[in-house]
Design a protein around this nucleic acid. Structure first.
Lengths: 335, 335
DNA sequence: AGAGTTTGGTTAATCGATTAACTCAAAAGG
DNA sequence: CCTTTTGAGTTAATCGATTAACCAAACTCT
């Protein structure tokens, strides 16, 4: 296991100063062709790969973007991340991936590590808001872009899908097709995503003069098990829904298992609309009507925001980008 | 945007030397309680976060692991990555994520960047094998663990699922249930995963004295579109299969779209087994019989291997870990 | 020819930690 | 009482790049 060659060694072999080698590599100053050639052949001979950690220390930028999300194995996030990564490499940045499982303690630990690594920027889909933690995040002396989940007084750039609108549209669709007792399985109310989707649902009911009945609203945790359990609860209770809006892909999957286990017919006994349009939506039985979020695009936008913010740290006014979700109508809503 | 405090500033404020501050932080030498207290309060006052890039330069380790895969938005990989990341943080490493889209040029570019960042290790699901590239990878002076796809003369540690066995088991299952003309949609034959699954398929046919008919074998590219197109091709040709093994989740999804479009009945007209057990397998119509790979676990194992390898670079004998896939029988195979 | 510019480099300080080698005072040993 | 050890910190070199400041030779211009 041999040590890597250094710029100094290249310089010695090429019989020039380190400054010249650096200038050749970075094309920062004119260097005569003959010297250049020497330098290049020395680099080749030593198999030289510039040490970017030394460079980072000197120029005070790491070319690293910290990415804090709850779970990369959630397809929604994996597409977002893909969009982020694709776009960031364009700009010469690399991505440090951190999964928090929505655990605020984990998130804080990661944050500290990332700050230690002097990341040039942070893209965060935060899980916490207790103890002014989100405010702390927004006041960091490194650019931050919030992803989908954000603090209430907005402190940094944010890109999100318009969750209120998505839930509103889905609910309204159900209302317009004659459903009267529309239930909802929400996400955790501690997370803005969870809150906003519930708001959209309620707004649609209000708008169409339908009563909001708390018996039809259950709070899940964005995981499949809760979708399964809460669907069963709703179906088994006396006052049961004739349609159901489910707040994310995993819980929808859980619900599908539930209806299969219980032999419920969809949409005849229960219409379903899911939030998130997973790739299986079209091949499930019945195919799933879903609110589609532009995940990849959201990632691209987040990457753009953070890059601009790094370039011009002065323009401090927070920018907000809200992407519109769209309703993909298939069989499960019976329309 | 204020500058971060340095260790030197902490030392000045606490009226001690930088060495002492460092010793307090790392607990590398005894420091009296009174001095310690001073140092800590200075750190707090300045909101000090140690600069790990400086540390990395000095101690020659980055605590970074480079992760090269084709596509994080493939659920298989997103689970693998989750396993890797969970395990690596245990050991104090962070993950640099790189998506190559199976593009060898992209992969090489990433590799160079990662080497520049002096990653302590590399986990690679490589796409290329041309020009001795994989050999080059194996001979790097940084530890490498191959993931799922590997060079033929094995040069480094590797963890993979036993693809031959997975395809063999699935094919045999179809044979034993009476199917005679079993077709296959393979992955790219330039990738070991693609090759191995085809081998397993052929071995099963051989073993049971069934003919291998090239008309029933189509090479896809692991993407949905090819699964869709090739399924249609197979169905429309004169000599059509009565059962079909499909080499990965995306192509299986494409196939499901194809059968829906063409109105083919599964399993009556065509039995299907898919490689990979996506989360929708149980709720699709019909539910999918699938070869399940232990994705998360594979990630954990890869993380373990790379950590051990970093600790003890001397033990150079490549280690191989093959995980067993399992067949999950549902409706689509008609058994 | 002599002063001023340009060309094609070099020298050395710097980024922010770690750590081997050193210092000085107090304690221990004979 | 003098020497040796030990204890608790300090000094300064180092990791591998970048870059401001400098310099000698060659070229321009009047």
């Amino acid at each position: 296991m041999k040590r890597n060659a250094t710029l100094k060694e290249v310089a010695q072999l090429a019989n020039v100063s380190t400054a010249t080698v650096s200038n050749v590599i970075n094309e920062t100053k004119y260097v005569s062709d003959s010297v250049k050639k020497n330098v290049y052949s020395a680099m080749n001979a030593l198999n030289y790969v510039p040490n970017t950690v030394a460079k980072s220390l000197r120029v005070q930028e790491s070319n690293l973007i910290g990415l804090i999300i709850s779970d990369i194995s959630n397809p929604f996030f994996s597409h977002v991340v893909r969009g982020i990564e694709d776009n960031l490499t364009e700009f010469g940045y690399n991505v440090l991936l951190c999964n928090t499982d929505s655990d605020v303690e984990k998130e804080k630990k990661y944050l500290k590590v990332l700050l230690g690594k002097r990341v040039d920027g942070l893209i965060v889909s935060s899980s916490g808001n207790a103890d002014g933690y989100l405010e702390e995040l927004g006041n960091l002396d490194v650019p931050v872009v919030f992803l989908n989940r954000y603090p209430d007084p907005l402190l940094s750039d944010i890109v999100a899908t318009n969750n209120i609108k998505g839930a509103y549209t889905a609910t309204e669709h159900l209302i317009q097709h004659g459903y009267k007792r529309i239930g909802m399985i929400t996400g955790p109310q501690s997370i803005s995503t969870g809150r906003d989707r519930l708001i959209g649902y309620k707004q649609a009911l209000d708008k169409h003069l339908l009563p909001i009945d708390e018996r039809l609203i259950k709070e899940g945790d964005f995981k499949a098990e809760s979708g399964n359990r809460l669907t069963k609860e709703l179906i088994k209770q006396d006052f049961k829904p004739d349609a159901l809006l489910i707040s994310n892909n995993f819980m929808t999957l859980g619900a599908y298992h539930a209806i299969k286990e219980l032999g419920i017919r969809v949409p005849e006994d229960l219409a379903i609309i899911g939030y998130d349009d997973p790739d299986w939506a079209a091949v499930s039985n019945p195919s799933l009507t879903a609110v589609k979020q532009p995940a990849y695009d959201q990632g691209v936008q987040a990457a753009n925001l953070i890059c601009e913010r790094i370039k011009r740290k002065d323009q401090f006014k927070p920018r907000e980008i809200y992407l519109d979700p769209s309703l993909i109508v298939r069989e499960s809503c019976g329309c």
